[in-house]
Design a protein around this nucleic acid. Structure first.
Lengths: 198, 198
DNA sequence: CTCACAATCTTTTCGCTGTCAAGATGGGCT
DNA sequence: AGCCCATCTTGACAGCGAAAAGATTGTGAG
């Protein structure tokens, strides 16, 4: 905060937040270490006291955004009153998070961290990973139906792919859709499960 | 071909193909005009005789890959003998195209060209655009079911999002899945329609 | 045939970038 | 009080996209 002192005092956090701000406004292509440093009122090499290199800063930024994302998902899970439609609301929150910040999508999912793990021996402690959140919620929602574990696993992957695909498409550069399209998300998300019921 | 002559003779096409080769091997982050030029045995400014700037070359590369992609999809449509499962096979081809070349996915769908157009007044001449190919195939496949136009439209968007989401997930950096996971794609793709039937 | 033109390619230069090395600063512990 | 060392600055270097200016050569008009 004290812009005059030689030592910034909170540079590491400031760099992360400023970097995310730039990403959200201009996208990853326009992110440079020197620009972030300058925006923090600091010389171009100052970041190297806190991060090994540019990729190291980007990883920290990604963790920060991923945590915000998981918070948005968890909030829906914890406050949803109609548990029978929780997968629809969770999916809608998933899509809307990225519609609000389109640049976050490619930023989050094109980096080194494992955001999705479909392998049989996936780490169950990946609690903050989007697919793991969706998967555990879906298991709770689908278990009462008595579907076999194998089939439930496939269904969850399919529903997650549908949600993730909608997020990918709606955040694509120059993808066009009507204004009321956002209202359609819920309808589209329910198609899978309603189709399975009827 | 003649590496000694002052004039390359086929530089424009060579730059496009070499650029795509670099993308497929190293991803877009490692693509530079100078590297492409050097790989073509030409000075670093030579590309400017054929392309306005780097983005112009990238657009040409994207068109080239998009055409290859549409060819792969059209080939499935034209050679599919079991028309009742054409949407499954089309979706599988969609996913496998990008599994074979993971770097193509973000490259194709993060650029300026409109690859997906969900608006009501979408240009119907976008025949080579992936969503338009999928949509027209789906209309032919679903029309006999007698579903309303409105609902069919939503269903097609949902199925396309599922397919596109699978492609996005399977090509994500560091996404892990078992070897036999590729065999599961077909199963997962059929879940939507089989759920709707049963 | 020749010769000038225009397309193509090279060289040079510029500002920006990531990264590293060396030095300056000053908060906090002994 | 004085030293240490994390933090920050300055300066340098190679690689990048881009533009300007000059070199080369295929080609078509005469």
């Amino acid at each position: 905060m004290d812009t005059k002192s030689y030592h910034h005092g909170n540079l590491r956090e400031s760099l992360i937040e400023m970097g995310i701000k730039i990403i959200s406004l201009e996208g990853d292509a326009n992110l440079s270490l020197r620009k972030v440093a300058s925006a923090c009122g600091v010389s171009h090499a100052a970041p190297y006291a806190h991060f090994k290199n540019k990729d190291d800063l980007i990883n920290a930024m990604q963790e920060h955004v991923a945590f915000e994302f998981s918070k948005a998902l968890m909030h829906v899970i914890e406050t949803c009153s109609r548990k029978e439609e929780i997968l629809t609301y969770l999916g809608k929150a998933y899509v809307i998070f990225f519609m609000d910040n389109p640049h976050y999508f490619s930023f989050l999912f094109s980096r080194t961290e494992i955001m999705v793990d479909f392998s049989y021996n996936a780490d169950p402690t990946n609690n903050y990973k989007p697919y793991e959140i969706y998967r555990q919620t879906a298991i709770q929602a689908l278990t009462p139906t008595g579907i076999s574990y194998e089939k439930m696993n496939d269904i969850i992957i399919a529903m997650f792919a549908l949600v993730h695909g909608l997020a990918s498409i709606t955040t694509m550069k120059n993808t066009t859709y009507d204004e009321k399209w956002e209202d359609k998300i819920e309808t589209i998300l329910t198609l899978f499960s309603s189709g399975r019921k009827g």
